[in-house]
Design a protein around this nucleic acid. Structure first.
Lengths: 316, 316
DNA sequence: CTGTTAGCGCCTTCAG
DNA sequence: CTGAAGGCGCTAACAG
């Protein structure tokens, strides 16, 4: 592996000049600089991350903590992970995946946090490194999220446009910002447009949605669209409709939320609000790296990324 | 953050002695050593990974490459990841997640490889760092895997014990060791026990299994058990049976394979061969770290971990 | 068994 | 704009 020293010798300059050519390009004469860059390319020079880490007192590690049972972890975390690591790789940063029981082990330069519960906030507040959340929180931390409010509005608008005239929002029974935003998006839309509507809240399990539908089947006339807060619920609803003899999508529409993996599993592929998770992962990583580089910034950063409706077989 | 120097001063020894107390305990007088350890604890000393990496010419990074579309990635990778990182964290190692388009970026001390295709072997062979595969390959690389042969035998044995007398193996139409092992496990078992049986091979998608079942429904009498090579197929089969009016589990049994996440989605929760993925991930990481520490070892290491049948609602 | 010396590769600081 | 010196925290190699 080529080092600064090798490049310097070959380019007839000192190590420092090479170092500067990389980190402070403005401080090196342009011609010299291009020459150095050429030599670097020739030698396939790669800066040594450990040496940089040592001198800059950085670990070059970012920790991603997922405060959820891995067992029940949504598959979409994989996409998120892919996005995060793609971005980190480009900056010679490595990842440390921490789970709810190991989140205190090891050093890092910053954290990407997700699935946080109330009781973890004390730990978060005491962290000295910068933090970025995946998903909005109640606190004033930086975060990356989809526009849940807008996304549900788009879903409902689409359902209405399909001609469904009874709108049901199937929410997740949890007191979290993402859920409240989605619910509010629904309420506002049906309110403004004077639509028949209803909101139900269920635990986020397919079979619970199926059971609910069985028990309340008669309350849902033809031409009902179910706007669901997750693909799990959407699949459960869809199964329930089919088991009750309902026709999807002609008499009943189903719209999911997430758009990763699960929508491929449904018997009628789900129309779903697809979150660009890879992009969101990258954004979270980029934001965190920026904060690591410039820790002084004080204002809260919010990155809102738009979801896109992926239309499939569960709506007409 | 405390350094070797701080500990040394406080313990009235040189840095080297402290270093040795950590890395070569045998070379330090026992009493001195315990004293040093105490001081380390007092100061909450954590060795600086970057400095170690620099001097030992290691990166302290392990790369995990997943040669699959993240989009269709099985959710169980999350469990695998959890296992790997739990083990790495304990050894001050970080992770670098590489996907099929970024697998050449960055340095590392070793690789955990999965989802490899024929065309990637050239790249693998040219790697200078140690490699561990997740899942057996055709080549003589070290690997961690479940005992696919045994697992399917157990599945069939259980189905027989349930009283199903027509056994159908629903395999994945792919020419891979894991699949051939599973198929062989099935064939050997039904052969030795002179059972009615049949093997079909399908692309690994739920709806394809459902379609297949619809088209061939009449060929499957009551008392048939479907032993599936994946939970996706199992869910598809189960859906198909139910749509044809068949009774699960009374008249038809379904057994899946994997046991992560998907089995929770099925309308009748799947009986499935549950792979201990967290454990497998840890094992892979541990094996790799051992190879990094002792690169000379030449013999192929195979770690085979047993799966366990998780009995649920899709068998009687 | 313990200490001293030197250096891993890079960057900050200070001279030129 | 460029170079020389020194040190980040740790450990291998050699003295004692």
């Amino acid at each position: 592996m080529a080092t600064l020293h090798d490049v310097a010798k070959r380019a007839n300059v000192s190590k420092m000049t090479v170092s500067r050519a990389i980190n402070h390009p403005g401080q090196v004469r342009p011609e010299l600089r291009t020459n150095i860059l050429n030599v670097m390319a020739e030698l396939n020079y790669q800066p040594n991350a450990a040496a940089r880490a040592l001198v800059s007192r950085r670990t070059r590690v970012v920790k991603l903590t997922i405060f959820e049972d891995m067992d029940t972890t949504e598959p979409y975390y994989m996409m998120l992970l892919a996005g995060i690591s793609n971005e980190l790789n480009q900056h010679q940063y490595a990842l440390q995946l921490a789970t709810s029981n190991s989140y205190k082990v090891g050093e890092c330069d910053g954290y990407i946090l997700t699935g946080i519960r109330e009781k973890n906030y004390a730990w978060v507040e005491q962290l000295s490194q910068p933090v970025v959340f995946f998903g909005r929180t109640y606190q004033d931390y930086d975060y990356v999220d989809t526009d849940n409010y807008q996304a549900i509005q788009d879903s409902v608008a689409y359902a209405v446009q399909c001609g469904y005239d009874n709108l049901v929002f199937v929410g997740i029974a949890v007191d979290a910002p993402f859920e409240l935003d989605r619910e509010r998006g629904f309420q506002d839309f049906v309110g403004e447009n004077h639509l028949h509507s209803r909101v139900i809240r269920l635990a986020n399990h397919g079979h619970i949605a199926t059971d609910y539908l069985r028990q309340h089947w008669l309350e849902f006339p033809k031409n009902t669209a179910f706007i669901c807060a997750s693909d799990r619920l959407a699949i459960g609803i869809e199964d329930g409709i089919i088991q009750q003899g309902g026709n999807v999508p002609n008499d009943y529409g189903v719209v999911g939320f997430d758009g990763v993996f699960l929508n491929q599993i449904a018997s009628k592929r789900l129309t779903t609000m697809k979150q660009p998770l890879e992009v969101m992962g990258r954004a979270a990583a980029r934001l965190l790296l920026a904060k690591i580089a410039h820790p002084q910034t004080t204002e809260q950063e919010k990155i809102i990324i738009n979801s896109r409706l992926s239309i499939s077989e569960s709506t007409r």
